[in-house]
Amino acid sequence: MRDNYKGYLFILPAFLMLLVILGFPAVAAVLQSFNLMWVSKPAFTLRAYTALAQDPEFLRSLSNTVLFVVVVVSSHLVIGLGVALLLNMEVRFKWLWRVVAILPWTMPDVIGGLVWRFMFDTLPGIVNSVLLRTGLSAEPVDWLGQPDLAFGAVMLAESWRGYPYAMLILLAGLQSIPRQQYEAAELDGCSAFQKFLFVTVPNLKHMFIIALVLDTIWESRLFGMVFSMTGGGPGYSTQILTLLSYKQYFQFFNVSYGASMAVVLATVLFFISLPYLRMSMRQQL
């Protein structure tokens, strides 16, 4: 149509909002990390970044984040694929299984963190109660008080809460596989496992990558769950980058330092999201 220029007008309000509320703060954060904005004497410096490289708390938070994301996202994909395969079958009470399968994801992450914190509570928690009553452990275990156990507990909690997201994406992928391909495979005498390997896997690859990328981004940005479950402790054993950046910025007022951590995180996420962005764009052409 001739009035294509009007498209700009329709997009303008959203564009302006994003520019002011997302674009400007993003640029400001980068400038702050180089000590160029909202300081009495702006002067370009890399001090924040060089300090990062020598800060054991930052390095630990960075490695925590990587380990956390790798473990949690892999578990989401494994559990998610398993449950998606189950829900894709002709089972009875399908709606009930579907509803239950989605439930963990409906819980806001902050709330999930609180519930799991109480589950792992040393004395009145359910985990120690089960261990004691089944005779697996006579002494109550201080789950959230010991660095390695606490980190494991947080990863377990987020594995539980977040997997339905990956599951739903994979389920959509499974449902879009044409039945004829399975029927053809059956005619060729394929076993159930061969059908999975030669029909399901290649068809699901695309959605699997989408689930992988999107879930990685969600989990790298996670904040509320860890904040409410351990607050990063004990020490900084469960601290992830988002939490440390928040603390530096809002609790210790190391503005430039806190910003530099967020910039590092955002840069990594940008590169991770590139394949997804490219894929989405190709579909729009």
Binding site: F15, I21, Q32, T242, Y246, Y249, A262, L265, L269
Partner: peptide, 25 residues
Amino acid sequence: LALMTAFLATQMIPGVLLVGPYFKM
């Protein structure tokens, strides 16, 4: 297409990057 990509890309920005400067604003 460039604008649409930009919109989608903003979803990848972590909140901790924005919240500090936004607080100042």
